[in-house]
Design a protein around this nucleic acid. Structure first.
Length: 947
RNA sequence: GGUUCUGUAGCUCAGUGGUAGAGCGUGUGCUUGAUAAGCGCAGGGUCGGCGGUCCGAGUUCGCCCAGAACCA
């Protein structure tokens, strides 16, 4: 051994097949292929069979369009939840779902085939919708799988599966049996282009220009009205209303006032005698550009009590003055035009006052032919004729154009109208649904906690749920409605179940293609109509708590055919109004309890500046692009690192940072694997009691961290998992333990206790760590798993948390925190020498620590091994009295002080271990080696006790 | 406009009323036996703003500002 480099062959350097370059984008697909080839999901399910189940219900994405980053975040979070449940020892199925019915898919099919009836009949149209949805699902499935989501991709639940559709009808049957389904005749958001009422979620608000008009309704008896104000006047008196929807005037049934407000009879110089709220007179005069003098005032209550009537401005009729609390002074005149068919407040106040809910506006959007002024015209074309008619009779007091926020169809982007139509509702009150739902909310865990208040407010305030839609592609609202009473059949629940069985066997056309007499006896059939509506799609997905189990996993149903309670629902925060909401209502209505034990919500994905993603801003990050470049594990790490309770920021820059963090974790694993090369736990593992003290300490630290990580998973605080894990890799391992360990791993004899102890600790740490990262870095975890020593035939995804040995460090008598603090002080001191050019590597230096007796005795625990702690060639403790003047002072966090002095070693450098110690060359046979190395290579080997 | 939230270093996040933290990034040095790696050191914050409670407030209360989701 005359060449120093030859000693390298005697050093135990790390060796592993685990590549430093992950090359995830290229290599992850081969893992996917392996997982699919071995049917990993089924393997994990059977491996965990018998364990306590954890039921997750997947909120179904809509089967239209490719997945975007929001879908990716959502599904990855779910995957993390389910995988961590398995680590907790649960049998946790993950059945993915898709939401398949509804308007967006109809519109896609319309693009190709035109509207229903143009090229395709309804049945063929539905078949095309089904086909389209399947194609979309295939695309989305591939993308989800690429993200490493471990789920039953071969057996998803689809809301368009006959078994699902049929069960949905049975859910409706139970809800009807429980008395929650009622018929209403209410104004609903109605899209003229859809020809249908819309769900709340389908309405969006945009600015719209509207005609804002002040219209004077002429008092039927001006003399009596004037007398009420205690004045005598000549000529007509007009009660002035303000509206931004002139087209609703033909449906006017009343004028509403607030009983508590003061109303004034006012003489305007130009407009004549008008009645309006006293407080708004000045405002009105300004708007009209007119001068006003108040002749008298009276409470709104008096106007109502004296049965004041006014002439309808567009037709020969009179309408009453009524009162309602919804009338305020915020805008207008304090008198409110009331058309119960076209406004919710109007409808409610009209109901109290027994006003008819009729309107001359038909479902086609045209007014009935016999209607004056607007007869036969489309609702969008009547503003001008109405204004002209009002002008002619002097009823138009003022006309302006305003821009205001107005409901629009989310699809067509066109303004909606309110229109009263016959609709079916799940009533919030008829059978106590609201109260029961509120109770169910209280029994649920909400993550974050404010979710409870959020949904509570919504349930407390919401109106009845309109579940009927006038659509083609949906589950039929399979009701039989009496032709005269308009009531549903008394045996509705039973009939729904009959329909359900046939739908399950034959599909939806079994209903759509049928006649009343196919279902009802001839004695009844003539009296009933088949309801042609479909169910709101929110009812589809909202029934997943029952239907998804029935269609994919009927084995877990109870003796009544009811599904188990889901452990968790996890969706974006908008779903408080959406899926959490609809699921809660259907489940409570069906079985008086919440569908979920816990609900987790996450925020939306935005760019670095907190802006929404949009094509025009060019800040869209596509998951497909990320997996193709950085890899799914980097994307998953980013998801886990983000605090999902608020907005989640993403950008190429942020992803690059995550890629850096990924590399650090990966390299830490690589170091562990590299130093476990050739280690056989069955024969080489060291019992905890035999291990070196620092190795015991390291294992104990890992156990402490594992407790924190498990807690973070349990609390669904995944970003803390990431923070703690990364911090551990960098600080505890890289910056300390692994750095210190190098000397021992590399230079002591391969099979020595000193080295085996270190390897045992590294294996414990690796066993624990691979599980910590499995829910997040799934590809990497499996890669590590395959290379860890020991039997790895069972999947890492079927493992439970690793049980680290329980160690009582108190027995060891080493004050590790003190040693850590001292190490910091030493590093700082060494830096001074380095800056001065005195030393390069720490192994060029020797350090002396000066401390008082107690401290020195505590620091003395490692004895001669202290130099390995500092990674210096020498380290000694000395009394304070011997402290040289140029020693550097350091205050420890305990408040105690130590002084450190460092100097360059004058000793020769051992060619093998690089320490500069006095006995280098002491052995004539091995002139380049220190005594330690001579012993380790040619002798019995050195003994280590602490470090 | 209403409801529910969010606002701590350039970034991602900790922070139980008692002298502002970590990692990343940045700068800088060492190492070349984790090497398209690793280690050290350094700089960086009126904790969104203003007021109140308290001996003391990032932490409690009120108001305001900015942003988000949902609702109207």
């Amino acid at each position: 051994m005359n060449d120093a480099n030859d000693y390298k062959s005697t050093v135990n350097l790390p060796q592993t097949a685990f590549p430093m370059q992950a090359n995830l984008a290229k290599r992850e697909p081969s893992f996917l292929a392996k997982w699919q080839g071995e049917d990993l999901y089924a393997r994990v399910m059977s491996a965990t069979a018998g364990a306590t189940p954890y039921y997750f219900v997947d909120g179904p994405p809509y089967a239209n369009g490719d997945i975007h980053i929001g879908h990716a975040v959502n599904k990855v979070l779910k995957d993390i939840v389910v995988k961590s449940a398995r680590l907790n020892g649960h049998h946790a199925p993950f059945v993915p779902g898709w939401d398949c019915h509804g308007l967006p898919i109809e519109l896609q099919v319309e693009k190709k085939f035109g509207k229903v009836g143009e090229k395709l009949d309804a049945a063929a149209f539905r078949a095309e919708c089904r086909q389209y949805a399947l194609e979309q699902i295939d695309r989305q499935r591939v993308d989800f799988q690429r993200l490493g989501i471990l789920a039953d991709w071969h057996k998803p639940y689809l809301t368009m599966q006959p078994a699902y559709e049929a069960e949905q009808l049975r859910v409706l049957a139970r809800i009807a049996d429980n008395g929650h389904v009622v018929r209403g005749f209410k104004p609903v958001h109605w899209c003229l282009d859809c020809g249908s009422s819309l769900a709340e979620a389908e309405v969006e608000y945009q600015d719209k220009q509207s005609a804002a008009i002040d219209v004077g309704f002429e008092a039927a008896d001006p003399v009596a009205l004037a007398r009420l104000f205690n004045v005598e006047v000549e000529g007509p008196i007009r009660l002035v209303i303000w509206t931004t929807t002139p087209w609703t005037l033909p449906a006017n049934q009343a004028i509403a006032v607030n009983a508590d407000l003061d109303y004034a009879l006012v003489r305007f110089a130009n407009a004549g005698l008008l009645v309006l709220a006293a407080e708004l007179v000045d405002d009105a005069a300004r708007r009209y550009g007119d001068s006003a003098s108040v002749l008298g005032t009276v409470k709104g209550l008096e106007l109502r009590r004296h049965a004041i009537h006014a002439r309808h401005p567009l037709k020969p009729a009179t309408v009453p003055v009524i009162s309602g609390e919804h009338v305020t002074l915020e805008a207008g005149t304090g008198l409110v035009h009331t058309a119960p068919a076209h406004g919710v407040d109007d409808y409610l106040v009209g109901k109290q006052n027994h006003l008819p809910v009729s309107s001359p506006l038909t479902s086609s959007g045209k007014f009935s032919d016999e209607e004056p002024v607007v007869g036969g015209l489309h609702v969008r074309k009547v503003d001008e004729p109405i204004l002209a008619a009002l002008r002619e009779t002097g009823a138009l007091v003022r006309h302006a154009v305003i821009t205001h926020s107005y409901p629009h169809c989310w699809r067509h982007k066109t303004p909606l109208i309110f229109r009263a139509t016959p609709q079916w509702f799940v009533s919030m009150e008829a059978a106590g649904l609201r109260a029961a739902a509120l109770e169910a909310i209280d029994a649920t865990r909400w993550i974050p906690a404010w979710g409870r208040e959020r949904i509570r407010g919504m349930i407390a305030d919401r109106p009845d749920w309109c579940i009927s839609r006038q659509r083609t592609w949906g589950v039929p609202l399979a009701l039989f409605v009496h032709k005269v009473t308009q009531e549903k059949h008394p045996r509705t629940g039973d009939l729904l179940r009959v329909v359900a069985d046939k739908v399950q066997a034959e599909g939806l056309e079994a209903w759509f293609g049928s006649q009343v007499y196919d279902w009802l006896p001839h004695s009844e059939a003539d009296d009933y109509d088949k309801c042609t509506d479909t169910l709101d799609v929110w009812f589809d997905s909202g029934s997943a708590h029952q239907c998804s189990f029935v269609s994919t996993n009927p084995g877990v149903l109870d003796e009544h055919g009811l599904a188990p309670l889901a452990d968790m629902y996890l969706e974006g925060s908008d779903q408080h109004r959406g899926w959490f909401h609809s699921s809660l209502l259907t489940c409570v209505a069906m079985r008086q309890r919440s569908p979920y034990k816990a609900v987790l919500t996450h925020g939306f994905t935005v760019d670095e500046q907190g802006r929404k993603m949009s094509k025009s801003l060019g800040n869209v990050v596509a998951p497909q692009q990320v997996t193709k470049t950085l890899g799914a594990d980097v994307l998953r790490l980013w998801v886990s690192a983000s605090d999902y309770s608020g907005e989640i920021a993403i950008s190429d820059n942020l992803l690059k940072r995550m890629a850096d963090a990924y590399r650090r974790i990966r390299n830490t694993a690589r170091y562990l694997l590299g130093n476990l090369d050739g280690f056989d736990p069955a024969t080489d593992a060291v019992a905890p009691g035999e291990m070196l003290l620092i190795d015991r300490w390291a294992v104990s630290q890992a156990a402490q961290l594992q407790a924190e990580i498990r807690q973070a998973y349990a609390d669904a605080q995944f970003h803390l998992v990431y923070q703690k894990l990364h911090n551990y890799c960098v600080t505890d391992l890289g910056g300390l333990y692994l750095d210190v360990l190098k000397d021992r791993l590399y230079t002591t004899a391969a099979k020595s206790l000193a080295r085996r102890s270190a390897q045992t600790a590294l294996l414990h740490i690796a066993e624990a760590m691979v599980r910590w990262i499995t829910p997040v870095l799934s590809f990497t975890a499996d890669e590590i798993w395959q290379l860890l020593p020991g039997d790895r035939s069972a999947s890492v995804f079927a493992q439970r948390w690793y049980e680290l040995p329980k160690l009582n460090l108190a027995e060891d008598g080493v004050d590790w925190p003190l040693l850590v603090a001292t190490r910091v002080a030493v590093k700082k001191t060494l830096e001074d020498l380095r800056a001065a050019g005195t030393i390069g590597s720490g192994l060029n230096a020797e350090v002396s620590i000066y401390a008082d007796t107690d401290l020195a005795s505590a620091l003395g625990a490692p004895g001669e091994e202290l130099r390995f702690w500092f990674i210096t060639s020498g380290a000694r403790l000395a009394p304070l009295s011997a402290k040289p003047t140029d020693a550097s002072e350091h205050e420890l966090s305990s408040g105690e002080k130590i002084w450190v002095h460092a100097n360059a070693s004058q000793n020769a450098r051992c060619e093998r271990c690089w320490h500069q110690v006095a006995d280098v060359g002491a052995s004539a046979a091995y002139p380049g080696l220190c005594g330690r190395c001579v012993s380790n290579v040619h002798g019995a080997g050195e003994a280590r006790r602490v470090i």
